[in-house]
C-alpha cells in the first residue's frame, strides 16, 4: 500500500446531553437516550480522512464496544473510512481506561500483523460521557509510541509527522517520527457528513469486521473489570445546592430590573460587589 495507514479510535457513547433529571423521583431518565459517536471523535475521523485524501493510504476506524456500536462504525464508513473494526467481547465489559486502552493497543498490534504497518493512531480530545482524555496517552504507553495531544493541524512526509497543537497559553509546532499517536483538539475541524455513496459501500462491501477475544487472545485478567485497576465503589446523587428560588415575572422591563437590583443590593452576598463595581473600592 502506498501512503499511510491511519487508525482512528472512537467511542460509542450515550448522548449525555439528552439525559434528563426527573425532579419528582430524583433519578436519571435514561430511557430512550440515543447513543452516538462521541462528537469529538468525529474530528479525529475527519483529520484521518484528510491525511488519507492528501497522502493516500487507508483509514481504519476501531472501537471497543458492545455490538450496537456497529452503527457508529457504519457512520464512520459513511464519512469515508476504508474499513472498521468492532472489538467486542463479554469479557471486555466494565473496563476502565487502562483496560480499554490495553484492548485497543493489542487490536492495533493485530492490525499491524494482519493488515500491515500502522503509521498513526488518532483519537478525539476527550469523551462527553466521562471526559477523561486518558485513552490516547495510555495507548501510546502500551505501544511505546510518541504522542502529541490537542493537535489542530497535521501533515505527513518521509515517515514523519508534523503537527500544530494548541494549549491554554501556547500554540506549538512539533515533529515526530512515525508511528505516533495524536489526539485532535476539540472542535478543530468541520467533520464531513455521511455520503450516500459511502453508506452504500457499507452495505455492499461489508468493510466492517468484528474481533472478539477469540481473535485477540488476551489474558482475561487483563481485560474488562478484572483488568481495571480502578473500580467504582459507589455512586451517589450530588446533594442539591440550596438556592433562594425567587421568581419575578416581568410585565415591564424597568420594573423587573429594579426588582433584581433591589434584591442584589439587599443581599449581603452581593451588595458589596455591586457597590464596588459601580462606585469603586471603599464605596461599600
Amino acid at each position: 500500500m502506498a501512503g499511510y495507514r491511519v487508525v482512528v479510535g472512537i467511542k460509542w457513547v450515550p448522548n449525555t446531553q439528552a439525559v434528563r433529571f426527573d425532579p419528582k423521583t430524583g433519578t436519571l431518565i435514561r430511557q430512550g437516550v440515543p447513543a452516538i459517536i462521541n462528537p469529538q471523535d468525529l474530528h479525529a475521523i475527519e483529520m484521518a480522512l484528510r491525511l488519507r485524501d492528501a497522502y493516500g493510504g487507508e483509514v481504519i476506524v476501531i472501537t471497543m464496544a458492545p455490538p450496537p456500536a456497529v452503527q457508529g462504525l457504519e457512520h464512520a464508513i459513511g464519512m469515508g473510512a476504508d474499513r472498521a473494526i468492532l472489538v467486542t467481547d463479554r469479557s471486555f465489559a466494565g473496563a476502565d481506561t487502562l483496560a480499554t486502552s490495553y484492548v485497543l493497543a493489542r487490536a492495533i498490534n493485530k492490525v499491524e500483523r494482519e493488515i500491515g504497518r500502522v503509521d498513526l493512531a488518532v483519537f478525539g480530545q476527550e469523551t462527553i460521557d466521562s471526559s477523561t482524555a486518558h485513552i490516547g496517552a495510555q495507548v501510546a504507553s502500551w505501544l511505546g509510541w510518541p504522542y502529541i495531544y490537542y493537535v489542530k493541524q497535521a501533515s505527513l512526509s518521509n515517515g514523519s509527522l508534523r503537527v500544530v497543537r494548541q494549549l491554554e497559553d501556547v500554540i506549538e509546532e512539533y515533529e515526530a517520527k512515525l508511528p505516533a499517536v495524536i489526539s485532535v483538539l476539540a472542535k478543530a475541524l468541520r467533520p464531513r457528513h455521511v455520503s450516500l455513496l459511502n453508506k452504500l459501500r457499507a452495505r455492499t462491501e461489508r468493510p466492517i469486521i468484528t474481533w472478539t477475544n477469540k481473535d485477540l487472545g488476551l489474558d482475561t485478567r487483563c481485560v474488562g473489570l478484572k483488568g481495571s485497576p480502578t473500580i467504582v465503589a459507589k455512586v451517589t446523587y450530588l446533594p442539591e445546592v440550596p438556592r433562594l428560588k425567587k421568581v419575578h415575572k416581568a410585565e415591564n422591563p424597568r420594573e423587573a430590573a429594579r426588582w433584581l437590583l433591589k434584591n442584589l443590593l439587599s443581599d449581603e452576598k452581593t451588595r458589596d460587589l455591586i457597590a464596588r463595581a459601580l462606585w469603586g473600592e471603599g464605596s461599600a
Binding site: P14, T16, V19, F21, L28, D129, S130, P229, T230, I231, V232, A233, K234, V235, T236, Y237, L238
Partner: peptide, 12 residues
C-alpha cells in the same frame, strides 16, 4: 460521572 448529577467514588 455520567450526566453530571451523580458522584462516583472510585478506588484502586
Amino acid at each position: 460521572p455520567f450526566a453530571a448529577i451523580m458522584l462516583a467514588y472510585i478506588r484502586t
